[in-house]
């Protein structure tokens, strides 16, 4: 009984607290990412054709975003958007989305 209670109490506060600071929406990377999630879904979990970003390896996301920006090979919106972002911002975005869980 007591153990169950402790478990209950743990769950709510820790589900937020368990994320590293850099994975919060209010962190610098998280704040930048809020512009992306309007299309890519909250925390990078997309409901439709726009790809999900949550939980993808940061290195993959960095490589992908830089390819869109620096060596675009097909007409896509991402070629245009990535032109607005520096290497540091791309790294921060990749770190944020890679820290998100692919399932809610």
């Amino acid at each position: 009984m007591r153990i169950a209670l402790i478990a209950l109490i743990f769950m709510a506060p820790l589900s937020l607290g368990a994320l590293p600071a850099s994975a919060q929406e209010t962190s610098p990377g998280g704040q930048l990412a809020q512009a992306c999630t309007s299309c890519h879904g909250l925390q990078g979990r997309s409901l439709g054709a726009v790809p999900s970003l949550a939980g993808r390896p940061a290195a993959d996301l960095v490589a992908l975003l830089k390819t869109f920006r620096d060596a675009p090979n097909e007409a896509t919106i991402m070629n245009r958007i990535t032109r607005g972002y520096t290497d540091d911002e791309i790294a921060a975005l990749a770190a944020y989305f890679s820290a998100m869980s692919p399932t809610p």
Binding site: S38, G41, S46, G48, A49, V50
Partner: peptide
């Protein structure tokens, strides 16, 4: 594909 992305944008932003 832009039409598909538009629908996905709409789904995601309204879900948010």
């Amino acid at each position: 594909s832009e039409a598909k992305y538009a629908h996905s944008w709409y789904e995601n932003i309204t879900a948010e």
